[in-house]
Amino acid sequence: MKFADAGSSFCKTFSPGDGAVTIVPSRTMARSEERFDWGTGHTARRLSDHYENDLISLSKGSLALVDEDDFTVLDLGSRDAKLVSFAGRRPVKLDWSVGCAAATGATVEMLGRFYEVDFARVPIGDEWTSVTCGTYAVERIMDAVSGGEDESAAIGRFIHGLARNVFAFSGSPDRLYLSGGFTQNPAFMAALRRYAQVIPLGRTVPLAGLWAFAAERDSALGPVPFALRPPTP
């Protein structure tokens, strides 16, 4: 049995018995003829026998991994943000922001490569750049850098602005579970932690959701395996 979470940039796959999730660029997956038993993410739709949309797999995975009644999970991907809030383990808010790709993971990653910045060394201070439009925000970074400001400091303000947006999009909770590749960006985590207690769930929540769906049909699968659970702090 093979599970796949194939988003815009990366495809994560897992099979029972695997020690870890395999991650490959989605563009290679889109051209392949590989099939999956369970899939999520738009690239996986035509390649999967059982398909669940991104919000459903995220929600199911969140419920499988978080043992609380009331909580909020945000998944920040390369070009979108997805949100699910539960009250009494029932979904009370579902949202999927796809309007502006510029303000999410892909842009931050491209900025980091462009300026050759190590995100572990990006300072997060009190100031932030308004990220109402990511393209304008990137322009401001370039203006600041060409005006002599340190690249890391300018990118830090951008990331801080992004964290503020994400916090507002999440409904400004006291505590926020964070899913997706951004959990591995130390600058973003530091910025978001200025506003809420942030608990990283890693990049495998949608896969954990698919596992949970499959386990409902085949109890022999058992609980969500260690490789799909959040990294220990």
Partner: peptide
């Protein structure tokens, strides 16, 4: 109706 809106409605119905 964008894919995100469809996904929200589907998810709400399914998860509820």
């Amino acid at each position: 109706m964008h894919a995100a809106t469809m996904a929200k409605i589907e998810a709400f119905i399914r998860l509820s």
